[in-house]
Amino acid sequence: MLADKIHITPPGSLYARIRDELRARIVAGVYKPHARLPSESELMSNYGVSRITVRQALGELEKEGVLFKVAGKGMFVSLPKPFQSLARLQGFAEALSEQGHEIYNHLVGIKHLPASSAVAQRLGLAEGAPVTELRRVRHLNRQPVSLDVTYVAAHLGKRLAQENLATRDIFLILENDYAIALGYADLSIDAIQADSELPELLQIADGAPVLRIERLTHTKDGSPLDFEYLYCRADNFQLRARIER
């Protein structure tokens, strides 16, 4: 039950302010995962609002996945999905470690090979030029969440092959160890069905939906540096972005 009754104006913003306050309490840990929220009647009394207003606030939080309903028992706090923001250029471990998650990379393989037409075009190389392919399965809290296939020019790839890629992000190695300033990345996102090696590596069913991201990262001066295909599970991980009008 909320500690104090809260009287909010103007009426038009009542449900949004209740929604936002409840969300803030959940994020702050006042209501833990799987905890039952105060009943509709309690919230009506505490906020001095109608049942319709309370249901609108709770309904929006349910749509966001913050709450889930149990018939006859009320609203409960969902176990939050880990997420990475698309608004910042960060490595996987860099972003998720900030949220307190356990990160581990399983290095599936490293190959030195001629650049395909697609890879050469992205990296600004001649087709057939030497590149390095790095394949890693990213684990979040001991569950696989993505297969990352990274391509870099061979002179960088040979150096990266000597690094500890199980616990370190390539972005941080490039910046901190190699003094290469990162600038920006171009992304494209689509959905595909898991086939080939993805079901086994990501522990998902054949044909399960997978989010595929193509990311081309540039240096601060605009030169293409790192081209990746990221194949992300759809059930245990989120990508988020804030888009301004």
Results as ranks from 00 to 15, higher is better:
184 Y>A: 15
212 R>E: 11
229 Y>M: 04
46 N>Q: 14
93 A>Q: 07
150 T>L: 04
150 T>H: 01
152 V>R: 00
154 A>C: 08
232 C>L: 15
10 P>F: 09
241 A>Y: 07
181 A>N: 14
243 I>K: 13
85 S>C: 09
148 D>A: 11
52 I>T: 14
101 H>S: 02
218 H>E: 08
42 E>V: 09
134 L>M: 00
104 Y>A: 06
107 L>Q: 06
206 D>I: 11
211 L>H: 07
235 D>K: 07
187 L>A: 07
152 V>K: 02
125 L>N: 02
148 D>F: 01
43 L>G: 04
126 A>G: 14
6 I>A: 08
140 L>E: 01
49 V>Y: 12
70 V>P: 00
165 L>I: 06
132 T>C: 00
200 E>C: 04
76 F>M: 01
153 A>Y: 05
184 Y>V: 13
140 L>S: 03
59 G>E: 09
97 S>H: 12
145 V>S: 03
135 R>I: 01
162 Q>W: 05
68 F>T: 04
172 L>F: 14
209 P>A: 11
218 H>T: 07
157 G>N: 00
176 N>G: 11
182 L>K: 12
85 S>H: 05
84 Q>N: 11
154 A>T: 08
184 Y>Q: 15
189 I>Y: 08
41 S>Q: 15
82 P>L: 02
165 L>H: 04
191 A>G: 11
50 S>L: 12
39 S>H: 10
119 V>L: 07
31 Y>N: 03
29 G>H: 01
68 F>V: 00
98 E>V: 12
59 G>F: 09
177 D>G: 08
121 Q>H: 14
167 T>R: 12
214 E>D: 14
2 L>R: 03
41 S>N: 14
179 A>W: 12
154 A>N: 13
37 L>D: 03
18 I>H: 08
21 E>Y: 11
145 V>C: 03
132 T>A: 06
66 V>T: 06
217 T>V: 15
64 E>H: 06
129 A>V: 05
124 G>S: 06
224 P>S: 05
73 K>H: 04
44 M>S: 10
109 G>H: 08
218 H>I: 07
127 E>M: 10
50 S>Q: 14
53 T>D: 13
192 I>Q: 13
162 Q>N: 08
138 R>E: 01
27 V>E: 09
170 I>S: 04
